[in-house]
């Protein structure tokens, strides 16, 4: 297993952990009428922002085509 796969796995585990916490809060809200705590919401935002930054930082690995423009006469 390479490092990228490990990182992706850890990221997903974070997603699952965050999702479980949020689902628990929502079920709690259903049963008690209490909303998600500010901290839980802030944690969700931190995770969403970090994920969005990771996605935004990705750039295609396709090499740019060589410059095929004809040479300018000297």
């Amino acid at each position: 297993m390479n490092l990228a796969a490990v990182e992706a796995g850890l990221q997903l585990l974070g997603v699952v952990e965050s999702g479980v916490a949020t689902l628990r809060s929502l079920f709690s809200q259903l049963s008690t009428g209490q909303p998600m705590t500010d901290q839980a919401l802030a944690d969700l935002k931190a995770r969403a922002d970090a994920a969005a930054a990771t996605i935004a930082a990705w750039h295609t690995s396709t090499p740019t085509p060589p410059n095929t423009a004809p040479a300018q006469p000297v």
Partner: peptide, 10 residues
């Protein structure tokens, strides 16, 4: 977003 980030890194 988290699932997207994981896919981007896969």
């Amino acid at each position: 977003q988290g699932a997207g980030a994981a896919l981007i890194q896969t």
